[in-house]
Design a protein around this nucleic acid. Structure first.
Length: 909
RNA sequence: GGGCGAUUAGCUCAGUCGGCUAGAGCGCCUCCUUUACACGGAGGAUGUCGGGGGUUCGAAUCCCUCAUCGCCUACCA
């Protein structure tokens, strides 16, 4: 069976089967694999939009979460990775509205109830594709606990939180200026507005003074980028300190075309340095002007309607789209001579994130959350470190936002979402807020109640996600067991509207933080450094990378045979360095594919050998310790301990690339390149040597599969299962996924061994280098003389004769103190050793000399640097003594090496 | 306007407390189809650590400054 493994790893052939077995084995369930005495570790997934499809950002986000949760699960923690999706109010409503449009109907024609039914139907039918896609990544979520923000339980959580906030005076209804989308016909929060730099114009308008000139002045000039708002002007503001206009304060100007008179008021909003120093005030359509209007009791005058068309106040422009109106109006103003000029400018304009059109600030009655007290409660959690950001720099960004937070507009004039649990009394006009629909008015007892038609901002329910998914407001066992959650893994883009609001919501609802650590990962960019997005055509589909297909990217088609989820995950982990952005292209995943293939083949090699030399059972540390271990085995075991420690500490610190690299280095360099090659000789030798090699190799492979598993779950699980069968066991009866993550075994650690192996490796490499340099084929057997400085060194090296002969592919080796250089030979210097390689053919002397000269130059540079340092009294005084001692020791070594090099060079002349 | 990040090999990036001749992957050059793997092995070449100044015995690393790129943020006169 084992021998039937194909030569190349084909992820497609195993991944779905492995995932199914995990699921059937209950491995994803909360608490799977937990061991006594271990704490809980929980992650609440950032719920993707139910309308969404998996993109590379999701792949990264979930690869990181899965790595963490698998690692903790294997460590025996009581883990929960809570999955689910978000109803994404405006986004989802827009999708269904578009469908209706294609059917030549509208949501209004359908009516509220039927429209919502329609959205649900759509959600049931095609929603949730993304959770299937998450499974293909290998995500080990507890799918039995999947939640949706509009589930009954979560909806109840929303109403409860709303009522509690309302009762606490932290939710209010008020008339405010909000961001208005004329396309979506709803208010938007600041977060749903994206500010874009656009090319625009600044027009200068003339308003004439009423009643003739004053001090020789008969007009006032104002500038605007939005002339159509002028119909709503209720004043012109000037600064009281501005000499130019002081005499005009209190006078009136007449608006052209409409002929309405408005006052000139003094207000600090007018900056004498900016523009003409006089500002037209349109309280209904500009946030600043709204404030000015309030200060001077100017009232309101809406001239742009909620649909973006001009109102009756715009005279003969009424009914015209605001931008068409602008154009027509400018013509008239120009004709009347009231348009004094136009300049091109670049300015920042807010656009609706969803529908893209410019936002119109509008004065409307909306629901708001009073953020000040919530923010004040949230700040100390972060300042104290109870909620810690990684990388740490986001702490400042987050705190800064909390300190300057503005009230949050939470009502949306759409239908898909949580309807605001507030009822208006037809009798006393008062508001009754309830978790369940009240039958009578709480104020007057009347029965004619009408519920507020609006729904809540999607982020209101998202803010409750870490605890609403656990059953809050019920005191469920899950809430007691997994809350607060442990780590939140997310993108910097939603620190404000999601992370901060979860902290505030959680502290308010439960008086507990929602999580302890927030890991902010980078953004996925294309190879040019531009953020990936569907509309730009620079996205890379994770599923195409996993399963294969054609990837259209930056105008070119890439054929991908399917790298597999592990390759995708490994590559992403490898690139995840402390929150830096990731520049990707479709071939980048070869990194992971190649490594996965290497893992596959190492597993194949072990399986082949175990099938020839079966062991009674998978080896434990004690089994290994009971063997007569050779130097090479002890070296491998020592390196393994380092790898285990490095992987663990990297994951503890959210250093995903270090984790990936520590595993890679050990696997590729130590295990494959050195130990496996050595083991081949041992297997050939047979007997106890073969048994020891097989045992140690299995032990090491078992450990390294565990180490790699959180990052590359499929291949490691599959190989591990194959290995279970080689000792007569059965596959799929237990799972690597829920078995123990390695911990360092101190009995296998030996600090003396690595430097010794390092020297042997340098000797072997030197021989290979000479072979290559002299244009000898790899297979050429060579005879080597190692001249050691003394008998002790010679003796020490002699015990590694077999290793040197095998790895250096030598015909013979002679090791001794002060051995003479053979007649025709090439010499390489390795520290205090001289390595003479006997050669029969023609020796390329020039190459040797050039190489020697280069080495000498490098050595001399290094030596003179150290000599200079040691000659410096300040260095001796200021540097730590160990440092100085190290420098002295290294210098002495290098001097011996230099002498050897020079002698060798002289011998070549 | 304010804030943050980045700038290290041809490309993509590591480099933790300032300390040994600055590393990896890809690409490149040479050799090797050796019974785990050519998605491989062996060996090799490649650096003004963005520029300038400073602190220090010592700077890729700390400070100042300039430049370029990116992100976030700001009341659209």
């Amino acid at each position: 069976m084992a021998l039937e493994l194909p030569k190349s790893y084909d992820a497609k052939a195993i991944e779905s089967d492995v995932y199914r077995r995990w699921e059937e084995g209950g491995c994803f369930k909360a608490g799977a694999g937990k061991r006594p005495g271990k704490p809980h570790y929980a992650i609440a997934i950032p719920p993707p939009n139910v309308t969404g499809v998996l993109h590379m950002g999701h792949a990264l986000n979930n690869a990181l979460q899965d790595t963490l949760i698998r690692w903790r699960r294997m460590q025996g923690f009581d883990t929960l990775w809570q999955p689910g999706t978000d109803h994404a109010g405006i986004a989802t409503e827009a999708v269904v509205a578009k469908q209706l449009q294609e059917e030549s109907t509208t949501r209004e024609a359908l009516g509220r109830d039927r429209f919502i039914e329609r959205v649900w139907a759509w959600k049931e039918q095609s929603g949730g594709i993304i959770t299937t896609q998450l499974r293909k990544l290998g995500s080990s979520c507890d799918w039995s606990r999947e939640r949706f923000t509009m589930d009954e339980g979560l909806s109840r959580a929303v109403r409860t939180q709303f009522k509690n906030l309302y009762d606490a005076g932290l939710i209010y209804r008020g008339t405010r200026m909000v961001n208005w989308s004329t396309v979506l016909k709803t208010a938007l929060s600041d977060d749903e507005v994206i500010v874009q730099e656009v090319q625009g114009h600044m027009w200068k308008l003339r308003y004439r003074l009423v009643g003739g000139p004053i001090a020789g002045v008969d007009e006032i000039q104002v500038e605007t980028t939005r002339p159509e708002t002028f119909f709503g002007d209720l004043a012109v503001a000037v600064n009281a300190k501005d000499e130019r206009y002081r005499a005009l304060i209190g006078k009136r100007v007449r608006l052209p075309i409409v002929g309405r008179d408005i006052p000139i008021v003094a207000d600090d909003h007018a900056d004498p340095e900016k523009g003409t120093g006089a500002v037209k005030i349109t309280p209904s359509h500009d946030p600043n002007d709204y404030e000015v209007g309030k200060r001077h009791q100017l009232g309101l005058l809406q001239v742009i309607g909620f649909d973006g068309r001009m109102t009756a106040e715009a005279k003969h422009f009424a009914g015209m789209d605001r931008f068409a109106c602008r154009k027509a109006l400018l013509k008239e103003l120009e004709a009347s001579g009231d348009l004094l000029g136009v300049t091109d400018i670049t300015h920042a304009v807010g656009h609706s994130e969803r529908s893209k059109e410019p936002i119109e600030p509008m004065v409307t009655e909306q629901w708001f959350v009073k953020m000040g007290p919530l923010a004040a409660r949230a700040l100390p959690e972060t300042i104290s470190g109870a909620v810690a950001f990684h990388p740490e720099r986001w702490t400042k960004v987050y705190c800064n936002w909390l300190e300057n937070v503005r009230d949050w507009c939470i009502s949306r004039q759409i239908w898909w979402g949580h309807r605001i649990p507030a009822w208006y009394c037809g009798t006393c006009k008062q508001i009754t807020v309830g978790i369940d629909a009240p039958s009578t008015c709480a104020h007057c007892g009347a029965r004619d109640l009408a519920q507020d038609p609006d729904v809540l901002d999607t982020w209101f329910s998202s803010a409750l996600w870490p605890f609403s998914t656990l059953g809050w407001p019920e005191a469920t066992p899950e809430l007691a067991r997994y809350f607060p959650t442990s780590t939140l893994v997310t993108d910097r883009g939603i620190i404000y509207f999601w992370v901060a609001r979860m902290v505030m919501a959680s502290l308010f609802a439960l008086d507990k933080k929602p999580f302890s650590d927030v890991y902010i990962h980078g953004t996925v960019l294309d190879e040019r450094g531009v953020k990936m997005s569907k509309s730009l055509g620079n996205g890379i589909d994770p599923l195409v990378m996993i399963e294969g297909g054609t990837q259209r990217y930056l105008g070119k088609d890439y054929q991908c045979s399917g790298y597999g989820a592990d390759a995708l995950r490994y590559t992403l982990l490898d690139m995840t360095t402390e929150g830096q952005d990731l520049k990707l292209n479709p071939t980048k995943f070869e990194t992971g594919r190649n490594f996965a293939n290497k893992v596959w083949n190492a597993g194949r090699f072990l399986l082949m050998n175990l099938s020839e030399r079966p062991l009674a059972k998978p080896p434990t540390a004690s089994d290994v310790a009971a063997l007569q271990l050779g130097f090479e085995e002890r070296w491998l075991l020592d390196r393994l301990q380092t790898a285990i420690a490095d992987c663990s500490s990297a994951l503890e610190a959210f250093r995903f690339n270090d984790y990936a690299n520590a595993g890679y280095r050990f696997f590729r360099d130590d295990l494959c390149d050195w130990y496996v090659e050595w083991a081949k000789r041992q297997f050939k030798a047979g007997g106890p040597a073969a048994t020891a090699a097989g045992t140690v190799l299995w032990y090491a492979v078992d450990k390294v599969l565990r180490l790699l598993h959180p990052g590359m779950p499929f291949i490691t699980e599959y190989l591990w299962q194959q290995l279970q069968t080689t000792a007569g066991g059965a596959a799929w009866t237990s799972f690597l996924m829920v078995s123990e993550f390695p911990e360092p075994e101190s009995r296998f650690a030996d600090a003396m061994i690595a430097p010794r192996m390092d020297e042997l490796q340098r000797i072997v490499t030197a021989v290979r280098n000479i072979r290559n340099q002299q244009n000898l084929p790899d297979g050429t057997k060579l005879t080597v003389v190692v001249a050691a400085p003394d008998a002790t060194r010679a003796q020490g090296l002699s015990s590694h004769r077999d290793f040197l002969i095998d790895r250096g592919n030598l015909l013979g080796i002679e090791i001794g103190a002060g051995l003479a250089k053979p007649a025709t030979s090439v010499t390489e210097v390795i520290g205090d050793l001289k390595l003479h390689v006997a050669l029969s053919g023609v020796i390329d002397l020039e190459k040797l000399k050039a190489n020697m000269v280069k080495q000498i130059a490098g050595k001399e540079k290094s030596i003179s640097g150290k000599q200079g340092r040691l000659a410096n009294a300040d260095y001796i005084r200021a540097a730590p003594p160990e440092q100085v001692a190290d420098t002295r020791g290294l210098l002495a070594k290098e001097q011996v090496e230099l002498a050897n090099l020079k002698e060798t060079l002289a011998g070549l002349e």
